[in-house]
Measured scan of single mutants.
Amino acid sequence: MTYKLILNGKTLKGETTTEAVDAATAEKVFKQYANDNGVDGEWTYDDATKTFTVTE
C-alpha cells in the first residue's frame, strides 16, 4: 500500500510517499525521514486517506 506524509515543519514543508505493508511500518519510515530532516512535531494519521501529517 502507498502511504503519504505531509510535512508542516518550521523550515521544511512538503510531501513524500512510501510503499509499506501496514501503517505501523510506514510510520517508522516517515518518523525516520522527518528526524533526518530536522522536523519534530505533533503527528496525526488519517486511515481513510492513508496520510500521516507532522506539524511543528
Results as ranks from 00 to 15, higher is better:
Met1Arg: 08
Met1Phe: 12
Thr2Glu: 15
Thr2His: 15
Thr2Lys: 11
Thr2Pro: 07
Tyr3Phe: 08
Lys4Asp: 02
Lys4Ala: 05
Lys4Met: 08
Lys4Val: 14
Leu5Ser: 00
Leu5Ala: 02
Leu5Pro: 01
Leu5Gln: 00
Leu5Val: 04
Leu5Cys: 06
Leu5Asp: 01
Ile6Lys: 13
Ile6Cys: 05
Ile6Met: 07
Ile6Asn: 05
Leu7Tyr: 15
Leu7Gly: 02
Leu7Met: 15
Leu7Thr: 06
Asn8Ile: 13
Asn8Ser: 09
Asn8Arg: 07
Asn8Cys: 05
Asn8Leu: 12
Asn8Ala: 08
Gly9Asp: 03
Gly9Ile: 11
Gly9Ser: 13
Gly9Thr: 14
Gly9Asn: 04
Gly9Gln: 04
Gly9Cys: 04
Lys10Ile: 12
Lys10Pro: 10
Lys10Thr: 15
Thr11Asn: 11
Thr11Gly: 11
Leu12Gln: 14
Lys13Tyr: 10
Lys13His: 13
Lys13Cys: 06
Gly14Gln: 12
Gly14Cys: 06
Gly14Glu: 09
Gly14Ser: 14
Gly14Asp: 13
Glu15Asp: 07
Glu15Trp: 15
Glu15Ile: 06
Glu15Asn: 04
Glu15Phe: 10
Glu15Leu: 04
Glu15Arg: 07
Thr16Ser: 14
Thr16Asn: 09
Thr16Val: 15
Thr17Cys: 06
Thr17Gly: 04
Thr17Ala: 08
Thr17Ser: 10
Thr18Ser: 05
Thr18Ile: 14
Thr18Leu: 15
Glu19Ala: 08
Glu19Asn: 09
Glu19Pro: 05
Ala20Trp: 03
Ala20Ser: 07
Ala20Pro: 01
Ala20Tyr: 02
Val21Trp: 10
Val21Ser: 09
Val21Gly: 09
Val21Pro: 12
Val21Cys: 05
Asp22Ala: 03
Asp22Gln: 04
Asp22Val: 03
Asp22Arg: 03
Asp22Tyr: 04
Asp22Ile: 03
Asp22His: 05
Ala23Asn: 07
Ala23Val: 11
Ala24Ser: 07
Ala24Val: 10
Ala24Pro: 11
Thr25Pro: 02
Thr25Phe: 13
Thr25Leu: 11
Thr25Glu: 09
Thr25Ser: 13
Thr25Met: 15
Ala26Asn: 00
Ala26Val: 03
Ala26Glu: 00
Ala26Ile: 01
Ala26Ser: 03
Ala26His: 00
Glu27Pro: 00
Glu27Asn: 05
Glu27Trp: 15
Glu27Lys: 08
Glu27Gly: 12
Glu27Arg: 09
Glu27Ser: 12
Glu27Gln: 13
Lys28Asp: 09
Lys28Tyr: 09
Lys28Trp: 13
Phe30Asp: 00
Phe30Lys: 00
Phe30Thr: 00
Lys31Gln: 15
Lys31Val: 08
Lys31Ala: 07
Lys31Pro: 00
Gln32Lys: 15
Gln32Ala: 15
Tyr33Ser: 02
Tyr33Thr: 03
Tyr33Asn: 02
Tyr33Phe: 12
Tyr33Glu: 02
Ala34Tyr: 02
Ala34Ser: 06
Ala34Trp: 03
Ala34Phe: 03
Ala34Gln: 02
Asn35Leu: 14
Asn35Pro: 02
Asn35His: 15
Asp36Cys: 05
Asp36Gly: 06
Asp36Phe: 13
Asp36Ser: 13
Asn37Lys: 14
Asn37Ala: 15
Asn37Asp: 03
Asn37Thr: 08
Gly38Leu: 13
Gly38Pro: 02
Gly38Arg: 08
Gly38Met: 11
Gly38Asn: 13
Gly38Trp: 06
Val39Thr: 03
Val39Phe: 15
Asp40Pro: 04
Asp40Glu: 09
Gly41Asn: 01
Gly41Phe: 03
Gly41Met: 02
Gly41Glu: 01
Gly41Ile: 01
Gly41Ser: 02
Gly41Lys: 01
Glu42Met: 06
Trp43Lys: 00
Trp43Leu: 03
Trp43Phe: 04
Thr44Phe: 11
Thr44Ser: 13
Thr44Met: 06
Thr44Arg: 11
Thr44Ala: 09
Tyr45Pro: 00
Tyr45His: 02
Tyr45Ser: 01
Tyr45Trp: 04
Asp46Pro: 00
Asp46Ser: 07
Asp47Glu: 15
Asp47Ile: 12
Ala48Gly: 12
Ala48Gln: 12
Ala48Val: 15
Thr49Glu: 08
Thr49Val: 07
Lys50Gly: 08
Lys50Tyr: 13
Lys50Trp: 08
Thr51His: 03
Thr51Gln: 04
Thr51Ser: 05
Thr51Leu: 05
Phe52Glu: 00
Phe52Ser: 00
Phe52Trp: 15
Phe52Val: 01
Phe52Asp: 00
Thr53Asn: 05
Thr53Val: 14
Thr53Arg: 12
Thr53Trp: 07
Val54Ala: 03
Val54Asp: 01
Val54Pro: 00
Thr55Glu: 11
Thr55Lys: 06
Thr55Cys: 04
Thr55Met: 07
Glu56Cys: 04
Glu56Leu: 06
